[in-house]
Design a protein around this nucleic acid. Structure first.
Lengths: 344, 344
DNA sequence: GGCTTTTACGAAAAGGTTTTAGTTAAACTT
DNA sequence: AAGTTTAACTAAAACCTTTTCGTAAAAGCC
């Protein structure tokens, strides 16, 4: 159906080899022939078959991107960023969604390898705790980059937010606003991001000599509005005097905010709230939600850039090197946490 | 690097043909040989090379999805829906973002054809008004499905929301709430969706004998918070007595809401507001924004299902048939438009 | 037992590109 | 003029799978 090198060669009265070389600018083809052939291929809109090409070159210019979910501002942003940046370097991205399922993640990785993608970028599912599928990628010599939800045990490139710093900054910010009894709505126990943010929270308390109480920490495994909402209702029974809250993600914070409002608390006067991720919604609700920026755009670019750098290395062992690139966090103070009105 | 049929054949002491046939369950291979070979391929984790396979079968099980943007609740939802549904039918999706650029859209289509994807799903860029690239797809006999931002002039399958009905419902809802002077913040002039919603608006006014005034309609080409915000500030100078507003999309509506609040208008008492798309944020802001549901999930499934149906048809001419599938709209009344408190 | 049918497997071509290793003719040496 | 370079092009193999067409042996038939 599609035109092939053979067709072009026939039409031009030259060999297949010559056409191929002309298109790839080999120096043993005369300038006249080159322009003649190129003009023709341009005219008939010929582009060499990518799969046949792969068979020789072993390069697909395809990248596999595996995400736990797509309907999520941050993953969404990082996806757009990777796709656009990849496109500008002539790479295309196959996007897969593990739907937080380890099984799916595993089989998707396998399928990507079967497709011979040039690289795999992945943010792992929450309950992924077996990493043989990831090690398989490395064994296969396919560049692997973990991002955001990473696994420290896998010897590959990893691009992460500074989650510890984020937890620390958020909590210290609340402390500086005068909070003494700070609740943390944390994420699940397994993911590194959730652990790191929690440690940041703890560290900030410690630094400011506020005793850590594990009862003030609740797990929100789903990261939804409802979890934040329910989390507050449960906590408030035992601790009606909380005056600060740091949530694992903005949506949870907004749920918490809803609960506090319903319970008659004033925000930020009675309780200061800060989230994480800087979702679009956070700057549009009332009061505007303080948060920590999670720059998906920057991270996406970093992931893609790291991949490109790998391509320009000697190859071979360049893939399986453990390295952690950390994207700095940034505090975005807004109304929801500003007890002292000095800023903003 | 990867194992091939040849390797397996060698190890098993049979021919390449036999291995291939065994894996594809041909009936001229004995059951014993089949199980023996399968056990081995399972063990060594062999999967046939997808590209070599393509060369014979002309099937890639890849789908190209072209979107104007990704950071957008609706496109995001539809993407997730398509990707997941596709995965369950063993198709993988290459996602491309035209960034609202006709030029990029055009070259991306070309690249997808070069990759021999089994189908292309596209929602066109705002300023796309030349359709030769789309017709090229049809000429290439590649199934093409347009969705949401479609082009009526292209003879292909199209899946759309009932935008006319949506505009009508939204406007009529405002009228029923007692609004007499209803502003419409519409989208750009070219996209069909924007035209249809506008026509719906007009039709509702007409039905209820409210004269249409073109000064009450403003174009918001960017569909952002700012556009809605500015739109209201501009309008309000001339028409301080507007009592209703229908915006092309929720984010614009929220911008408008912000402006009205700042100007001291009470919502919905002074002015009733309704958006379109049911973004996540709309149910979380105060007051909750009334809107029209734009079910991305449903549309994604419909798009993919239509594609699968095409695959099961005789092929050939099945691709280039003009057909429009309409996903019904649904009114979601919330606080922002409820002047009469009968509902909710 | 001589015939046809069935069973189980293999050879080879096709699919389109890339690249190595030529080949020919012209141009250049001395 | 004989030999060497260079320029411009080509043949053919390789990449890996699928599928058509064969072939050989075993089984079935009267």
């Amino acid at each position: 159906m599609n035109l092939t090198l053979k067709d072009i060669a026939q039409a031009m009265g030259v060999s297949v080899t010559t056409v191929s070389k002309a298109l790839k600018d080999y120096k043993d083809i005369s300038p006249e022939t080159k322009t003649r052939i190129r003009a023709y291929t341009e005219k008939v809109n010929f582009r060499p078959n990518a799969h046949a090409s792969f068979l020789r070159t072993q390069k697909t210019r395809l990248i596999g991107l595996v995400l736990p979910r797509l309907k999520h501002d941050f993953f969404n942003e990082i996806t757009e960023s990777i796709i656009c940046y990849a496109a500008s370097h002539d790479y295309k991205v196959i996007v897969l969604c593990s739907e937080e399922s380890y099984e799916k993640e595993k089989s998707q990785i396998k399928e990507l390898l079967q497709l011979n993608v040039d690289g795999i970028f992945i943010s792992v599912a929450k309950n992924t705790n077996d990493y043989t599928h990831l090690k398989q990628v490395i064994k296969n010599n396919t560049p692997l980059i973990l991002f955001d939800r990473t696994v420290k045990l896998v010897p590959s490139l990893q691009v992460v937010n500074d989650d510890f710093e984020a937890g620390f900054m958020a909590t210290e910010h609340l402390i500086k606003q005068g909070c003494k009894k700070i609740v943390h709505l944390r994420g699940d126990l397994i993911p590194q991001i959730s652990i790191d943010r929690f440690f940041g929270y703890k560290k900030a308390l410690e630094k400011h000599n506020i005793p850590f109480k594990k009862e003030l920490v609740t797990i929100c495994s789903e990261n939804t509005f409802e979890e934040g909402y329910k989390g507050v209702f449960n906590l408030i029974k035992k601790f009606p005097d909380v005056d600060g809250l740091f949530a694992i993600t903005d949506l949870v914070a907004i749920g918490a905010m809803g609960a506090f409002k319903e319970l008659g608390y004033q925000i930020p006067k009675d309780v200061a709230i800060i989230g994480y991720s800087n979702w679009l919604i956070s700057s549009l609700i009332t009061p505007k939600l303080s948060t920590i920026e999670q720059n998906g755009n920057k991270m996406g670019k970093q992931v893609m850039q790291s991949f490109l750098d790998l391509q320009n290395t000697d190859g071979e062992m360049a893939t399986s090197k453990y390295q952690r690139l950390i994207i700095p966090s940034r505090l975005i103070p807004r109304t929801s946490s500003m007890k002292t009105t000095e800023l903003l």
